[in-house]
Simulated scan of single mutants.
Amino acid sequence: MAKRVTIFDPPPLDTAKAGIENILELTPMQDIGPDVFTNSRPLWHPPGARGVYGGAVIAQCLAAAQRTVPEGFTVHSMHCYFVLAGDSEIPIIYHVERVRDGRSFATRTVQARQRGRPIFTTTLSFNKDDSGGKIKVEHSSQMPSVPPPKDQPPSKASQSPFEVQRIRTEFGSEPIEQRRLVQWCRVRDKISEEGGHRAHLSALAYISDNYFIGTVPRVHKIPRFSSPTVIEKALKALKNPSDLGSDFVANYINEVAPGRQAEIRKLAESHANGTAIDARKISSIIRSEDPREIGMMVSLDHTIYFHNPRAFRADEWMLCVMESPWSGDGRGLVQQKIWSRDGVHIATCVQEGVIRLKQDEPKAESKL
């Protein structure tokens, strides 16, 4: 019996909505319960990753919880744990529990399950709009001064629902914990009026997981794609030469040390035109810059604080700044601040993940 990626046949794409809205669409499962939902469409499994893109599960949990709170309540925080890798070849079931409904706050928990087991769990808190009173204690982090995003048409080759413009910064001698990764992000297409501010919040949650824990190896200048196995999986994701203009290049090839992209791009182009993958050659190019190699990198938890949930649009440019204050004991911590283009601090995110390097284990002595 063939596997089903979704429980129900996916509905037709709604061209009046942005691509992210279609991707995050949920189908109620009223026969099971009033607050049970499932993904309406297949979810993305990034090349080389252990499971589905974490941002999709985060965003769909938020979308499910938002369906259960009254109008006038807006999410202000969600605390998530990745329990198991999500399988992109089977459906995900989202179970929402209405923990509490108060006058000013409402609390929800959501479990994402596959094969009857939780793969992801989150607790969300919603605040009643304008419940803080007229006199408030207020302050906010200021957006750093960076070059504005470039006005350029989105790549037609890319299948990603959002686009990223990284602001390249060559790290110098500053301490690792002071190094920052800066990028502009926004959703492709315009989010519909029907989706409203809740669709923008779900889209922001989706984007927030973009290369988040990957900040740790980047500030350490450790190439992420140095293993021949990982590179081979990533290159196999190329379906045709036009894919080289997509986010594959931006997210993978351009992560290597400066000055080596052209050499690796040439090898990737040869593969896209039918030449066999020479992953070990690519690996040797990357590792010549740094002998360290990522053995395992996976997210453990993810927290989002929504500061000004109605003061932004996810389909307009947002500035994301990531830094890692600590790593050790096989784990790493990353903080991310997000501002709207006009300087409103709209969210702060925190993520911890497993960061393990491949160890040079001595070979076991053979027994006589």
Rank of each mutant, 00 (worst) to 15 (best):
V146L: 02
Y81V: 06
C185K: 06
S270Q: 15
A276L: 08
R179F: 06
V249F: 13
I93M: 07
I338T: 02
V69D: 03
A234W: 00
F212W: 06
P47V: 05
P47G: 04
K128C: 08
R115I: 11
N240V: 07
R292D: 08
E316S: 00
H200W: 00
A106G: 13
C349D: 11
Q60G: 10
R103Q: 12
R180C: 10
F8M: 11
Y94T: 05
R265I: 13
I90P: 14
Q183T: 15
I176P: 09
E263R: 08
K150N: 15
G54H: 00
W339I: 03
G195T: 01
A276T: 11
R188F: 05
Y211W: 12
S227R: 09
L238K: 10
A112C: 02
I338V: 06
A234D: 00
Q335T: 13
T27V: 06
L333S: 08
V36S: 10
P118K: 05
A262F: 06
T107R: 07
S327Q: 09
Y252Q: 09
I191D: 03
S284P: 12
T122Y: 04
R356E: 08
A268F: 00
G133W: 05
Q351I: 02
A199I: 02
S227M: 05
P118I: 04
S88T: 12
K156H: 15
M78Y: 07
L238F: 09
W326Y: 10
I92E: 10
A112L: 04
R67I: 06
P147Q: 00
